[in-house]
């Protein structure tokens, strides 16, 4: 256990070392938060209530998604594992006396915590100062939000880990990963809130694992999750467990493949 905590800590420290880079990122997140907020405000001015949200909910959503973008790794093509498989360095990792998946989870978690510390607050704070952002004051609500975010993070890691593992078979995970990013950008609700998407497409989008990454935690925070917090927790747990289990199985297959080929 201690080795994983050390991995988290080192990875976090490495992220924090590049503070100016994170500041640049937070600036960009804030700019995009404003653009999205203006677009949503234009929509809500014409139609004051969509999918149970009023204008303040929508604007809050715009800045929160930008704040969560970095820790949730929505733009990340994979984990750092992908390139290591491509270059063959992964052989070293596979023989390390640690659990492979947990090891990579620890490293990625450190990065996510760093992102959360440095890049989540600035866009939300900026939005709260200059836009009609509305955040709840109830500590319980924030706790529920935090738990949902943790589950959302596990889903995100699970998806990216699977995409990285694809490199064991294609020898180049970049193609797969870029498609995954494109899907994730839309299906996580970054471009437009999923609750606004009408018809069957909207229904489908609310059930993909990406819905649990940002949309559901924010729904919980705003108190607008249909089915309540319980549903969001169940949904997040279901996808996180499923994806992590799939990653675990695929790791064994990949390990077998490397051992056989390496001999």
């Amino acid at each position: 256990m201690r080795v994983y905590l050390t991995a988290v800590r080192l990875s976090l420290r490495r992220y924090l070392a590049y503070r100016s880079s994170a500041a640049a990122g937070a600036f960009t997140n804030t700019v995009f938060g404003c653009i999205r907020a203006f677009v949503l405000m234009a929509l809500w001015k014409q139609k004051p209530e969509i999918g149970g949200w009023d204008l303040a909910d929508a604007v809050t959503y715009a800045f929160l998604t930008q704040g969560l973008l970095a820790p949730m790794g929505v733009f990340m093509t994979s984990t750092e594992l992908g390139p290591r498989i491509r270059t063959g360095d992964v052989a070293v990792d596979l023989y390390r006396p640690v659990d492979f998946q947990t090891w990579w989870l620890s490293l990625d978690l450190g990065r996510a915590l760093g992102g959360g510390l440095l890049r989540t607050v600035p866009p939300v704070l900026f939005g709260a100062l200059l836009f009609p952002v509305r955040l709840p004051s109830s500590p319980l609500r924030w706790t529920e939000f935090a738990v949902c975010c943790a589950l959302g993070y596990l889903i995100s890691f699970g998806l990216r880990y699977l995409a990285s593992l694809a490199a064991f078979w294609t020898m180049d995970e970049r193609g797969m990963s870029s498609i995954l990013v494109a899907l994730g950008m839309f299906c996580s609700g970054l471009i437009i809130p999923l609750s606004v998407v009408p018809g069957a497409l909207g229904t489908v989008l609310l059930h993909t694992p990406w819905a649990g990454i940002m949309q559901m935690p924010i729904n919980v925070l705003l108190g607008t999750q249909s089915g309540g917090v319980g549903y969001a927790l169940a949904f997040g747990t279901f996808w996180a467990v499923l994806l992590l289990a799939a990653g675990r199985m695929l790791t064994d297959v990949a390990r077998h493949k490397v051992v056989v080929q390496g001999g």
């Binding site: 590049y18 100016s20 880079s21 500041a23 640049a24 990122g25 600036f27 960009t28 700019v31 995009f32 653009i35």
Partner: peptide
């Protein structure tokens, strides 16, 4: 290391 600021202006 402030490259991401550029994205605000181009993609933004």
């Amino acid at each position: 290391d402030a490259q991401e600021v550029a994205n605000s202006f181009t993609y933004g």
